[in-house]
Design a protein around this nucleic acid. Sequence first.
DNA 1: GTGGTCTAGACCACA
DNA 2: GTGGTCTAGACCACA
Lengths: 125, 125, 125, 125
Amino acid sequence: MITLNYQSGMPIYQQIKNKILEEIMLGILKADEQLPTVRTLARELGINPNTIQKAYQELEGEGVIYSLTGKGSFIQNVGVAGQKILKERLEAVTKALEEAKMAGATRPEIDTLVTAVYDKGGNAK
Amino acid sequence: MITLNYQSGMPIYQQIKNKILEEIMLGILKADEQLPTVRTLARELGINPNTIQKAYQELEGEGVIYSLTGKGSFIQNVGVAGQKILKERLEAVTKALEEAKMAGATRPEIDTLVTAVYDKGGNAK
Amino acid sequence: MITLNYQSGMPIYQQIKNKILEEIMLGILKADEQLPTVRTLARELGINPNTIQKAYQELEGEGVIYSLTGKGSFIQNVGVAGQKILKERLEAVTKALEEAKMAGATRPEIDTLVTAVYDKGGNAK
Amino acid sequence: MITLNYQSGMPIYQQIKNKILEEIMLGILKADEQLPTVRTLARELGINPNTIQKAYQELEGEGVIYSLTGKGSFIQNVGVAGQKILKERLEAVTKALEEAKMAGATRPEIDTLVTAVYDKGGNAK
DNA sequence: GTGGTCTAGACCACA
DNA sequence: GTGGTCTAGACCACA
């Protein structure tokens, strides 16, 4: 179930990519599981199939899914993709931390945030 | 002295905004101090005046600077602007943390990052 | 015994063609020997009969097998087909070599590859 | 100067990618040199700008070029990209060699091909 | 002007 | 039916 945000400024195909990555990370989508077809998902979301196609093709280029013409699109072996995603996100945290520090954030303030996120229970979003 | 990175993917006007915000946070630019004019800065950086214009306009919209027609652009009272910037950056950290957690980042991994950033000394960038 | 690789990107009908060509080259399939029927092979491999049909039709078009309506498909006189296949594959090697050379591959690098392939013993795959 | 082959079956965007990779490999295109704009190249080749866009975006995703909105597209630092391309092409040679061997190609036949390619002079295509 | 996103719709190879 | 390619054309952010 993907809900699109047309006001956020984030491209639709990006939102779709993120949602799929998220579901892989959370174990909702598992290796070799089939994704909705390009056309089906496009119909469901009320958008153009080309936009789904773009999302799927980028994910395939990144080794996250694989596509079989005439069959459909499937989740790739999760391990490799997952490690890459984790690494990217840790780098994003570091960058955000540096900017916050520059704006005057203190160590205790940051620690409070970290604790808040890690005590929220399983689902972080 | 602003150095632009054309290959980082970050829009030029954003880099300019960030640099000014940074200098305010670090106390280099102080309240009511005058910024270089749009044309002067454009010439210095070898870029289109429209780009500087956009950076200044957004900073004015965010209450960070104020413009006096025919006089130039000036740093707003720092306290107010600073608190808003800090708040935004702490929110960015929270968002980055949530995404990292979802990708499998553990609490100790995050703590290591935080310590790394806060033990680097004064200049975080 | 054909094993299909759904993730290699190579079309299924191509994999079937290649496997048959390979078995002819290796002398496993001999002249006038009967191939499994389209339906039998489709059932065995768990794929669509159309896919087998396409593989057989192309092989027939290339003079590698011949079909007798109501009887089945048979291996063509091996000599003729084999020479054509060999010629095609040598052309493929030339093309690959030219592209590698253009990308900076040196003669010794190529010689190393050739030796590696030809010293591996009977089974090259 | 790119000439397209509409009969080859190779997608147009692939042909464009290959041509650019080739020119980088041959040193015709150098680091930070600007490529023709999406629209210009589309007009020149008589094809849709979207097709050029796709070629450029894939090259950017592969780290071969970088694009600056409002400025144009440029050749990335060549070293890294070049090594990746070379490695891929050597693997293609190995695969072609294995298939040729399986079809009965002898070592001397292969050596003849290699010599033919490497004695043709600078321009292999 | 330049790259990036998206829609609408056609046509193809493959299964 | 399914993914892949391509055209035509609109609109956007950025420079």
